[in-house]
């Protein structure tokens, strides 16, 4: 459900579960992590990555159906949160630029993936956000990456408030870097940007990405991400989260 292909210096990684709005499974997160590893020949051949989703939306978040039969320790939800944090960190570690096509919707865990990208393209009406506090889940896991992307004011607003926001608001706060009018324009534009980045001198690109992250404090990111993950994980087996998740099954 994750596929990737390398073509002329560009690695295109696709979330390919369109019938489920690309809802993430632990396997998909594991494969996604792998897609941002560059072995052997790919090490020098891949010069940019495009992350996109098949179907009507980029990604609707975790596949919560998988949590329905979870044990009292909520192992599945823990796995989701840990894997998500690892994937975003891996995307940031990627030595080449990462372009993300957030068409339609990028929600919860799907929106968290934006924190791993260098350039995000979305359409004006795309639905973005972190509505998981409604489920008694803390989106803290995304906080360090969102803070880095948009600064503490907007990050605070968007992580505490479960309301979705549109692509235009995403662009205003700096989460979306290039805004297009229509959903159908997102993929072509993201492709175009990714191809352009792949064509640029690789040493300069690699050095620049690494340096910008470094001056912005990436050395502290590992520790911040670990604290953030703890904050999210510490709640998953609590009464509030379990009751609210069970409420979700009842309404389905």
């Amino acid at each position: 459900m994750i596929r990737f292909e390398d073509q002329a210096g560009l690695r295109v990684v696709t979330l390919d579960r369109p019938d489920k709005r690309n809802a993430l499974t632990p396997d998909m997160l594991c494969d996604l992590y792998g897609a941002f590893m560059f072995r052997g020949d790919a090490q020098s051949a891949v010069r940019a990555v495009l992350l996109r989703g098949e179907g009507p939306v980029f990604c609707s978040g975790f596949d919560l159906d998988l949590c329905q039969d979870d044990g009292p320790e909520q192992q599945m939800m823990r796995t989701f949160l840990i894997s998500l944090s690892e994937v975003v960190k891996q995307m940031r570690r990627s030595p080449v630029p990462v372009v993300l096509a957030a068409h339609g919707a990028a929600i919860a865990g799907g929106c968290a993936l934006l924190g791993g990208a260098d350039v995000v393209v979305a359409e004006r009406g795309a639905k973005l956000g972190y509505p998981v506090v409604r489920l008694g889940i803390s989106p803290a896991v995304s906080a360090p990456f969102l803070l880095d992307a948009v600064g503490p004011g907007p990050a605070r607003r968007r992580l505490l408030d479960p309301t979705l926001f549109d692509g235009a608001e995403g662009a205003r706060i700096g989460l979306v870097h290039e805004l297009v009018e229509e959903r159908g324009e997102v993929a072509p534009r993201a492709h175009e940007i990714a191809r352009d980045l792949a064509s640029k001198p690789p040493l300069a690109m690699k050095a620049t990405k690494k340096w910008v992250l470094e001056v912005a404090g990436e050395a502290k990111m590992e520790g911040r991400a670990a604290r953030a993950l703890d904050a999210s994980v510490s709640l998953v087996a609590g009464d509030e989260a379990i009751e609210r998740l069970q409420g979700l099954w009842k309404t389905r």
């Binding site: 506090v133 008694g136 989106p139 906080a143 408030d161 479960p162 904050a231 709640l235 989260a241």
Partner: peptide, 24 residues
Amino acid sequence: VVRRYTESGALALTATKNLLNDLD
């Protein structure tokens, strides 16, 4: 705005807020 918060999980909100206060 208030309703969005009161409909959310109180513990999740507090944990998120505490983490943000910690990070910033």
